[in-house]
Nucleic acid binder design. Structure first.
Lengths: 212, 212
DNA sequence: GTCTATACAAAGATAGAC
DNA sequence: GTCTATCTTTGTATAGAC
């Protein structure tokens, strides 16, 4: 900690620089992975020197962890928003839209998260088995309750959540394939609307109780 | 090409060695990526020397490409099996089972494919825009036909295929997360059955026409 | 075909001046 | 806080003997 004449302005500048590094790092890590990304490339993209980067983040791994922590909240926000006081089908429709917005607006975050999963989540395992499991257990309880009330078809809540995750992330993680096959991605407004409607319809009809 | 007293036996030995290398490479590439995997680790796992490995595959990239080509067929087999002469709902139920079997029996193949997609599929782009697009277009035509006959709810065939892909691969690609949250993976027989049933039910109900 | 030894390059990290 | 210079490790790939 250094003494500062103007702590606010200076710490703002520092924060901005850190953020620029984190953003550049996310873009590269999410595409090339930890080992496929060099600090030199990150520094170049963030417009700082490599040495300077290592001043802010003591090692490559430390930077990687910082990036991961940074995106976890964005990634989990839609699920956190799922509340028991909503109408089940509306809640799930809303969740699908939110998650597809994340896939559209933060595809790199989604992809880095995916990359980390593929590798067995060495750095996130603790979070997964702690916070995430807790969160999912809360939400499966809500879903089970809806089912007991007859407001939802009797499906396994875990598999429903997996399905929601899988279908919504696919458009970010497999954007290349989606683009190659369909010719579009979520950044196209028309395609985004079509995607929301189709995913909502297929999932909602799949879990609606007959007559509701 | 060397002269051989016993071409069959020798080429069998060569083929076995190449296969051992490919298998070892798949296991490591799928977890750590191209750059996160060293030839030394591959050689160690395949029980050959590093120099010897480079005798069979002239470079790391060549090995990586060979692995990718090797898995593409496995990955596409279930979709190829989708035929117009089947009953739509049976065909899709069958597809889901086949694809989940791939996720269970060849998770590394699924994960490497995913990894390659995340990076923008630099080595598969040609395949994606050629063979895969052709295959998908064939199958969307079949699905459209089923819809016109009123045997399937009117959904966009592309999004249906994306949903099938996403939900079935998720159990391989995100196995770590599935394990952390639910406590099981597809290699557990009971969990596998539950998964097949739940995914089939949710998707089938989602695309069934009312009254069918 | 397989080995030992080695060339060569890339990249993470540190030292020390300013 | 930022820079230049440099150390060190790791890892791909090749040369050449057997």
């Amino acid at each position: 900690m250094t003494t500062m004449k103007n702590p606010t302005r200076r710490s703002q500048a520092v924060a901005a620089k850190q953020q620029a590094i984190l953003t550049a790092a996310l873009a590269l890590f999410s595409q090339f992975g930890l080992h496929g990304t060099s600090l030199e490339k990150v520094a170049e993209r963030a417009e700082v020197s490599k040495t300077n980067l290592l001043y802010y983040f003591p090692s490559k791994e430390a930077l990687y962890v910082a990036v991961l922590k940074n995106i976890l909240d964005v990634w989990l926000a839609p699920l956190r928003a799922l509340q028991s006081d909503q109408q089940p089908l509306d809640a799930i429709r809303h969740y699908i839209r939110l998650k597809l917005e994340v896939s559209r607006d933060h595809p790199n975050a989604s992809r880095l998260f995916c990359l980390e999963m593929l590798q067995g989540a060495p750095l996130l395992k603790a979070e997964l088995e702690g916070d995430l499991k807790q969160l999912v257990d809360d939400k499966t309880a809500i879903i089970s309750h809806w089912i007991q009330e007859g407001k939802l078809a009797p499906v396994d809540p875990y598999h429903l959540i997996f399905m929601l995750w899988a279908t919504t992330q696919h458009y970010a993680d497999f954007a290349t394939q989606v683009q190659a096959v369909s010719g579009s991605t979520l950044s196209d407004d028309v395609f985004f609307s079509q995607t929301v409607e189709n995913v909502q319809r297929m999932i909602i009809e799949g879990i609606r109780t007959r007559g509701s």
